[in-house]
C-alpha cells in the first residue's frame, strides 16, 4: 500500500485532483490561495502541467540522448502562435468563420501544429544534430532566437499582421469539448494534467523501449552506438521531432489558457528557464519533468511574493539573478538534479 502511495502515478494525480477540487468547490469556504499563503494557485498548477509536457520532451532529448537544446521555447512558441493565429486571425487566411467557430477546430489546429512543428524539427534535426557539445547548444540557441525574431516581425509579412508583432495576439478562445467549455481554470487544470500525465507515460514508454536504450547508448558514445547498429542520425532527429511536437502541444494549450500570446514569452530567457527546470528536476528521469516544473514555478512565485517582504530595498523582479545563481549551484553540487536517475534497466 505504502509502495503504491509512494509511486508518482498515484501521488501526482491525487495532488492535481485535490488542487482542482479546492479551486472549483471551495469546500467550507477554504480557498486554495489562502491555504498556501497565496503560493499555490490553480493558475500555477496549470503552468506546471504545461511545462511538464515540454520538459518530458526536453528530458528525453537532453538527459537521455545527451543533445543540448537552448532553443526549446521556440517550438513552444510555434505551437502557441499556430493556435492563436488559426483561431483569432483565421479570417486573414481565408478560412471560413463557421469552421473556425466549430468546437473541434482548435483541437484540429493543435494536432496539425504539433505535426508541422515536429516535421520542421525533424528536418532541422537532421542537419543541426550533427553538431556536438558546445556547438549544438549554440546552434539551437541561434535557431531559437531566429524563430523569436520571425515571430516578432510578423513572419516577414507585416501587411497580414499575423503574429501581431511585439504585442502578439489577444482574445484566443477557450477550448471546448462539444458544447461544454473546458473552463473555469479548475477544469482546464484537469485537462492539462491529463495531457501532461499522458506525456509522462509516453516518455516512460520511450525510455523503456529499444529506442530508449539506443538513446542512452548515443549519450554514452555515438561511435559505439553506431557500431552496434543504432542509426544515430535518424534516432536523434526523431527524438528532436518528438520533443518539438510535445513543446508545440504545450504551446497550443498555453495559448488557449492564457488567451493571449506575445513573442517575448518564447525568447531566449524562457528557453533557458526550460533548461533550468529540466536540470532541477533531473534531466535523466521522466518524472523529473513535473517535479522540476513545479519546484521552479513555486520558487519563482515565492520570490515574487515574499522576497519583497524579506529585503525591503529590492524592487521589481529578482528572479533572473536567483535563477542564474541557482543554476550554477545546481551544476556545482547536484549535477543530476533532484530526482536521481534509476539504474538503467
Amino acid at each position: 500500500m505504502t509502495a503504491r502511495l509512494r509511486s508518482p502515478w498515484t501521488a501526482v494525480p491525487c495532488a492535481v485532483a485535490v488542487v482542482a477540487v479546492l479551486d472549483l468547490v471551495e469546500p467550507f469556504g477554504v480557498r486554495l490561495g489562502h491555504l498556501t499563503g497565496g503560493l499555490l494557485t490553480a493558475d500555477l498548477a496549470v503552468r506546471a502541467g504545461l511545462f511538464t509536457i515540454v520538459l518530458v520532451g526536453l528530458n528525453l532529448l537532453m538527459g537521455y540522448a545527451g543533445q543540448a537544446s537552448l532553443g526549446q521555447a521556440a517550438f513552444y512558441g510555434m505551437g502557441a502562435f499556430a493556435s492563436a493565429i488559426l483561431t483569432v486571425r483565421a479570417h486573414v487566411l481565408g478560412i471560413p468563420p463557421e469552421v473556425v467557430s466549430a468546437w473541434w477546430w482548435p483541437w484540429v489546429v493543435m494536432a496539425a501544429a504539433a505535426c508541422a512543428v515536429a516535421g520542421f524539427a525533424w528536418v532541422v534535426g537532421w542537419v543541426i544534430l550533427r553538431l556536438r557539445g558546445h556547438y549544438l547548444a549554440m546552434a539551437t540557441l541561434g535557431l531559437g532566437i531566429m524563430v523569436y525574431i520571425v515571430l516578432r516581425e510578423n513572419l516577414g509579412m507585416p501587411h497580414l499582421n499575423l503574429t501581431g508583432g511585439f504585442d502578439g495576439i489577444v482574445g484566443v478562445p477557450r477550448l471546448r469539448l462539444g458544447s461544454a467549455a473546458l473552463w473555469p481554470v479548475g477544469v482546464y487544470l484537469l485537462v492539462v494534467w491529463a495531457a501532461a500525465l499522458a506525456c509522462v507515460a509516453l516518455g516512460e514508454n520511450v525510455v523503456h523501449s529499444p529506442a530508449g536504450r539506443a538513446l542512452r547508448a548515443i549519450h554514452g558514445s555515438e561511435a559505439a552506438a553506431e557500431s552496434v547498429g543504432v542509426d544515430v542520425g535518424a534516432l536523434k532527429a526523431r527524438i528532436f521531432a518528438l520533443s518539438a511536437g510535445l513543446a508545440s502541444v504545450a504551446g497550443s494549450l498555453y495559448a488557449h489558457f492564457q488567451a493571449a500570446v506575445v513573442p517575448d514569452t518564447f525568447g531566449f530567457v524562457p528557453s533557458l528557464e526550460l533548461v533550468v527546470m529540466s536540470a532541477v528536476g533531473g534531466m535523466r528521469t521522466v518524472w523529473g519533468a513535473p517535479l522540476g516544473a513545479t519546484v521552479v514555478l513555486l520558487l519563482e512565485q515565492l520570490l515574487r511574493t515574499h522576497l519583497l517582504g524579506l529585503v525591503p530595498a529590492v524592487s521589481g523582479e529578482l528572479e533572473p539573478v536567483v535563477f542564474g545563481v541557482l543554476l550554477i549551484l545546481l551544476m556545482r553540487f547536484r549535477p543530476s538534479g533532484l530526482v536521481q536517475a534509476a539504474p538503467a534497466p
Binding site: G133, H134, A137, G316, L318
Partner: peptide, 30 residues
C-alpha cells in the same frame, strides 16, 4: 563558477556560463 567545474561535462559548463550571464544581467536590471 567555472574553476570548480573544470572536469564537468561541456553541457554543465555551458549552463554555468549561461547562468552567470543571466545573473549579471539580472543584477544590471536591478
Amino acid at each position: 563558477a567555472l574553476h570548480p567545474l573544470r572536469d564537468a561535462a561541456p553541457l554543465a559548463r555551458i549552463i554555468v556560463t549561461v547562468g552567470a550571464y543571466v545573473s549579471i544581467q539580472g543584477i544590471a536590471l536591478k
